[in-house]
């Protein structure tokens, strides 16, 4: 599994015709097998961090390292297979569950028929053991779709998993079961996880460490327990008190 590091990363974007830093000199290291929960107010730059980590976007300056290698030197296709991403909405393809799950390996030329056992294993992993792989993705509930989306990403056997608010579209009970699933995935595969969430409760449930970003800047990064017991910054205390939106 892999360590991922952000070194002085800045991302500038045009917002309402004005160039703004959505990420401003961000530096953070996430050790192998760690779950880093990333929190902060809306528009803080949390999702942008994830998008930079698998090169859906590129940084304006600074570097992102995967096991010490600058990701801008890695072929983006190879990188994205190593650094998988789960989005806020499941974004399944309008195909069957089986076709969704075999999409990633299929791109590498793996014959879908040779993946039946693996598809079953992944559906078991995401707690959908009774789901028929022949079902159309569009027929599933949002919670089931999000689980299938996680399984689809895991089919590529990623070393890092980026999760961009994967629970925000789910009801509380389903969200809780997806959070348990994230912990299971880390335990079973030892994957490094960057987990972005609006919910402090969700961050606390899954995270080993916590990163607070406000206006694109890192405010604090600490052990999750330490943050929730007492943030070391004023902004951290305000965020915990729900005063930053």
């Amino acid at each position: 599994m892999a360590k991922i590091e952000f070194l002085n990363v800045t991302k500038t974007r045009s917002i309402d015709g004005e160039m703004r830093n959505v990420l401003d000199d961000v530096s953070v290291a996430v050790e192998k097998g760690t779950i880093l929960a990333i929190g902060g107010p809306s528009g803080a730059g949390k999702s942008t961090m994830l998008r930079l980590a698998n090169r859906l976007e590129s940084a304006t300056s600074g570097r992102v390292l995967l096991d010490g290698v600058d990701i801008s030197t890695i072929d983006p296709i190879r990188l994205r297979r190593k650094v998988g991403m789960v989005f806020q909405l499941p974004s399944l393809f309008p195909l069957t569950v089986q076709e969704n799950l075999t999409y990633g390996p299929g791109l590498r030329g793996v014959e879908p028929s040779s993946l039946e056992a693996k598809v079953r294993e992944m559906l078991d992993m995401v707690d959908l053991p009774d789901l028929s792989p022949g079902r159309l993705a569009g027929e599933l509930s949002v919670g089931q779709q999000q689980r299938v989306a996680i399984a689809r990403t895991l089919m590529n056997e990623p070393e890092v998993l980026l999760m961009d608010e994967p629970t925000s579209a789910l009801d509380p009970a389903t969200a809780k079961s997806v959070l348990e699933l994230v912990c299971d995935i880390r335990c079973r595969y030892g994957i490094t996880v960057l987990f972005v969430s609006h919910s402090l409760e969700h961050s606390k449930l899954v995270g080993d460490r916590f990163l607070l970003i406000v206006d694109g800047r890192v405010i604090e990064e600490s052990d999750i327990e330490a943050f929730f017991l007492g943030p070391s910054t004023e902004l951290g205390r305000k965020f915990l008190a729900g005063e930053l939106k």
Partner: peptide, 16 residues
């Protein structure tokens, strides 16, 4: 766009 980005994130080329 979400579907396109999901495919890219799984290692698809832009054309795929």
């Amino acid at each position: 766009k979400p579907e396109v980005e999901a495919a890219l994130a799984l290692g698809a080329t832009s054309r795929q």
